[in-house]
Every structure is written in structure tokens, then in C-alpha cells.
């Protein structure tokens, strides 16, 4: 694992490195280098299997963080490649030529975060939200509670309690 990471560091500019376990490590690279890094990992280091592609919304920094989690079936190690992309006009190069199953992840990210992957097959088709006309719901500026209350006829009479104080008052009323 360390050998591979040194190999990568000699070829790419790793801005951040985080080793979680002996078999799991996250590398952050620039957006321009991300595709070549995953291609390098897939073709030369045996990380041929894509576990997932996911995104995190860092709204304060104005960024989306994309994570390509790659798995090496022979050594049973995983490397996550992270990259930051701009929140406005969020686009990323499509990697459907490397893994065919990434099309589905890219469709999902397009729908849930509004991250575009130009050229990815069926990217414009509805995935789960058929006919969605609001801002993408996984963006953190989307108020899901407000939307739900406006749309789905909430049943009146629901009480919300903070679990810890509520249980405390129920179980130890004298304290």
C-alpha cells in the first residue's frame, strides 16, 4: 500500500493524504489530474473495480467533493480518489469509458446534486425523481422539510421531541 502511494506521489500532485486503515486510503488531487489518476490506478495498479462514486456538498467553501472509491480485488485494498469541483456550473469529465457501471452513479449525481457529466450515456434521463422541477434535493440549500410540508399534506398533530431530554424526563422525572 505504502509502495503504491509513493508511486502515485512521484507521478501526481497529491494535495492531501488520509490513511484510514491499512487497506483504505484517501488521496485528494486536483480536478484536472483526477481522471488520469483513476486511469493510472485502474490500468497499472490493479484497482480495476469501482466501488462507488459519490459527492459531498461543501456549501461554505462553494465546492462539491467527488470521491471515486476503487478496489483492488487481488490485494483487497481500497483507494479513494477525492477531488473538489466548483459548485457553480458543476461539471466533471465522464469516466464511463473506464467503468460502464459508473453511468448509473453519474446519472444519480446529475439528478441529486446537479453535477453534469457531459457525454455520459442517458445522463439526462430521470433516475429516481421523475419530473423533478426544483433545485436538486441533495444540495444543502434545498430545504427538504419546508418542501415536504408544502407538498405532501402533513398530518396535523405531530409532536417533535428532543430524544435525550424527552427520555430523561420520562425515565428520571425527579432529577
Amino acid at each position: 500500500m505504502q509502495q503504491i502511494i509513493q508511486d502515485i506521489e512521484s507521478r501526481f500532485t497529491i494535495t492531501d493524504k488520509e490513511t484510514r486503515r491499512n487497506d483504505l486510503c484517501f488521496l485528494t488531487v486536483d480536478k484536472l489530474q483526477a481522471i488520469s489518476l483513476v486511469t493510472y490506478l485502474r490500468d497499472y495498479q490493479g484497482y480495476a473495480s469501482l466501488t462507488l462514486l459519490t459527492a459531498v456538498d461543501w456549501i461554505e467553501e462553494g465546492n462539491f467533493q467527488l470521491t471515486y472509491l476503487l478496489n483492488n480485488p487481488s490485494t483487497r485494498t481500497e483507494i479513494g480518489v477525492r477531488t473538489m469541483i466548483d459548485r457553480e456550473n458543476a461539471t466533471m469529465e465522464s469516466t464511463h469509458h473506464l467503468w460502464e457501471n459508473i453511468q448509473t452513479y453519474q446519472r444519480e449525481l446529475k439528478e441529486m446534486f446537479g453535477i453534469d457529466f457531459p457525454g455520459s450515456p442517458r445522463i439526462d434521463e430521470d433516475f429516481i425523481l421523475e419530473g423533478w422541477d426544483n433545485i436538486p434535493p441533495y444540495r444543502r440549500d434545498f430545504d427538504t422539510k419546508k418542501y415536504s410540508e408544502e407538498t405532501y399534506f402533513p398530518r396535523p398533530g405531530r409532536e417533535t421531541n428532543d430524544p435525550s431530554t424527552y427520555m430523561k424526563s420520562k425515565l428520571y422525572p425527579n432529577d
Binding site: E149, Y152, F153, P154
Partner: peptide, 19 residues
Amino acid sequence: TINGGMYWDSYNTINRLDH
């Protein structure tokens, strides 16, 4: 199905089936 349950504030699940 009655009041949304634990998904009551979700953007994609209905709250009251009888509607």
C-alpha cells in the same frame, strides 16, 4: 403511510396515503 413516519420531512416520500 399514516403520517410519513420517520420519513415525514423527506423530499420524496408522501406523508398521508389517504390523500
